[in-house]
Amino acid sequence: MTKINENEDAHEFRSEAVSLWRITFGPLIWAVHFAASYAATALICAKGGAVEGLRLGIGIGTGVALVAIAWLGWQAWRQWDLLCDRDWENDQGTGEDRHQFLGHAAFLLAVVSFIGVSYVALPALLIGTCR
């Protein structure tokens, strides 16, 4: 019989303290990238400025965002640990399944965020002017 205040997976628990936030880090990067691209475009197009510089800036920002999301995705993939136990569902009420589930969700969100960032960068790649 375990006592409620003696935590056998105390170490693991601490590492999970921010996990519910962590699954949103991928979409958060998307949001920051989106807002920054939109704000920079609005500024440059309204105040006049080099559209080429803007496109380059968005390109660099996109590269940084994609690398960051890819890194998060890789971390989440390791946390999901699919290849070791082949567990797709993680539907048990255990600390391990909760840990891997959060990895799985964060991984999938990283994939969607990666696609989202790539999509949002396309207009800057394809359209050369503000008008």
Binding site: F34, Y38, T41, A42, V120
Partner: peptide, 16 residues
């Protein structure tokens, strides 16, 4: 009448 690039961002996100 927003800039074309801005419209493109929102179009892309709407597809995503």
């Amino acid at each position: 009448g927003l800039p074309q690039i801005s419209l493109g961002f929102f179009s892309a996100a709407s597809e995503a």
